[in-house]
């Protein structure tokens, strides 16, 4: 493994972290979309706010991390990806704006109508953003992004692999979120919500499994290099992912929610990791390898050192944030009826 490979590895760990942590945030938004009308959806939405409020901005930074690693470590590939995939990236950018603002604005909205409007912006973009990100991944993985950035700006991201990517992205987000929300609701002692999200997690897990297996056929036809990798050097990851998925289904069935959280994360991380291993050593599949597009070695060292700094400074802080959130030290208080503490009006 040489220097550029290490940088690529670190970048890919960032992609996995984004898929898992921001994925759960996106998924929460997807469930928010399906939470029902204002009357019925209240408790669900309150739970979602409670769960992702303190963490979503931090989780979102993994995307910045990946982008920066990409353009610094592999500048030419970044230019090519952004040129060819201009359209889906623009949609992702819009989705990110609407999601962040919608979420933050809803929390402080003063009447139901504006809360509803902001809520829809948040929820709808939580669905579309991972979808387009999945399509982008599909375009790269199926070899549709040439290194000179001259790929067709329309057809290159709507091939079969892209649809598989988009669909799987949305489904895994929803799955992760359902598991996380079920565990959160259980910890908060809200039985009805716990049960609701446990059932949803169970069903989504099965759909995810079916979709993943169904996605193999298009990949075999459309993305040969990737499919070879997935069934070759990436097969271990696929097995781990499948086994963790099955374990999640069993654990969810038995209502062992804390454990299901672990297996769910493993399942998703393994799929994403498998994709990375499968397309190694390509950055742009069939067009550019890691070694070919790696930036200057002094910069790569700089990146790795700054990653070391980040690991020392950021990871403990991040762990502290998650710990506080998990212990419900942060966030709005939440009782059985899904009323939050902040509704008390002090005159």
């Amino acid at each position: 493994m040489d220097l550029a490979d290490v940088v690529a590895l670190v970048m890919f760990l960032g992609i996995i972290a984004y898929a898992v942590f921001a994925g759960a945030d996106f998924g929460s938004g997807i469930w928010d979309l399906g939470a029902g009308n204002a009357e019925d959806g209240g408790p669900t939405r309150r739970l979602i706010d409670h769960a992702i409020g303190p963490v979503w901005e931090a989780n979102h930074v993994w995307l910045i991390f990946v982008l920066v690693f990409l353009w610094t470590g592999f500048p030419e590939a970044f230019g090519a990806i952004m040129s060819t995939l201009y359209v889906p990236f623009s949609f992702v950018a819009l989705g990110i704006i609407f999601r962040g603002c919608g979420f933050a604005f809803r929390k402080f909205a003063d009447d139901l109508n504006s809360a509803r409007l902001f809520g829809v912006a948040f929820a709808l973009s939580s669905l579309l953003t991972p979808f387009f990100l999945g399509m982008i991944a599909g375009a790269i993985a199926s070899g549709r992004v040439p290194i000179d950035g001259s790929g067709n700006r329309w057809t290159s991201w709507i091939g079969p692999t892209s649809w598989v990517g988009g669909l799987l992205a949305v489904l895994t987000c929803a799955f992760l979120a359902a598991v996380f929300l079920a565990a959160d609701a259980e910890r908060l002692g809200h039985e009805e919500l716990t049960e609701r999200f446990r059932r949803r997690a169970f069903v989504t897990a099965i759909i995810c499994g079916v979709a993943a297996i169904g996605g193999v056929a298009p990949l075999l036809l459309d993305a040969e290099t990737l499919a070879d990798g997935l069934l070759g050097k990436g097969v271990g990851f696929m097995i781990v992912s499948g086994a963790s998925g099955l374990a999640s289904i069993v654990l969810l069935h038995k209502s062992r929610l804390a454990a299901a959280r672990l297996t769910a994360v493993t399942a998703v991380a393994a799929v994403v990791g498998g994709w990375g291993v499968a397309q190694y050593p390509w950055v742009l599949v069939d067009h550019a390898t890691i070694a070919e597009v790696a930036g200057d070695s002094a910069t790569l060292w700089g990146l790795l050192i700054s990653f070391g700094v980040a690991a020392v400074l950021v990871l403990p802080s991040l762990a502290y944030l998650y710990l506080l959130t998990d212990k419900s030290v942060l966030g709005t208080e939440f009782n059985k009826h899904g009323q939050d503490h902040e509704s008390v009006v002090v005159k």
Binding site: A38, E39, D40, G41, G42, P43, R45, R46, D49, R106, K107, F108, A109, D110, D111, L112, A115, Q339, D340, H341, E342, S343, V344, V345, V346, K347
Partner: peptide, 14 residues
Amino acid sequence: AGETHLATPYGPSQ
């Protein structure tokens, strides 16, 4: 108007 905690109007029940 005197509110110190701002409630989020998740639903009309509130």
